[in-house]
Amino acid sequence: MTTLALAARDSATMLRRQLRHTTRDLSTTLLLLAVPIVFLLLFVYVLGGTLGDGLGGGSGGRAAYVNYVVPGILLITIAGAVQGTSISVALDMTGGIMARFRTMAIARVSVLTGHVLASVLQTLCQLVVVLGVALLVGFRPDATALRWLAVAGLLTATTFALVWLAVAMGLAAKTVETASNLPTLLTLLPLFGSGFVPTDSMPVGLRWFAEYQPFTPIMETLRGLLLGSPIGADGGVALGWCAVIALAGYGWAKRLYNRDRTR
């Protein structure tokens, strides 16, 4: 067997293992799904009426806000889901099974790619469910098939990037608790960006951060694709950020995985 075929086979084995975890640990899976849906309902029904009026332009109100907030909710979905990745990697690390895999003649990368592939698949499923709920509560996108495809592509790229980052966080964490806390920061990022209110309304320092942080161009691009608003340079910047985060996450994860471990 060639090295590549071996890596593919072992990755498939690891993927099966991870997918089994999803069904065995159903409470975690459902919890990760529940968080973005609760956020969605909270922002649409509790805050949406008032926030929608503040958006400016158009009809305002709850109907306008649903359309505005969905990209932010989608990113919260991804950020929450990769928290599960980080925990699951840390569990492997602290439980000793990672050490077992490392003493076996398998494609070394497969241990990580199994986690990555499974997490990407799970997250995409969650995104579909969250989008479904959004449509039920009044989300009305007007995207063409081609634009939907672009949305799917960008969401996959973002998920892929953040999953690699989460894998690294899981490897870096000494305990499962830390692994669970580290990615929480990612869940907050959409709030400190254009996810829930336009950045124009923020004070100067925060506004500067909100405009230049990676999640904002991703959310703006999604918004543009879904609602037909102008995208401009955001599309390229969004993909650039995805590439940077993915590479950094991959590099960090690889270094941590190959380091000599004392325990």
Binding site: R17, R20, R24, G95, G96, I97, R100, A105
Partner: peptide, 21 residues
Amino acid sequence: ADRVRAAIGVTGQFSAVDDFL
């Protein structure tokens, strides 16, 4: 290392089993 890995079995101090499986 890979030849060594193919020839050995390791049981650690802390059971390295997959709890969910």
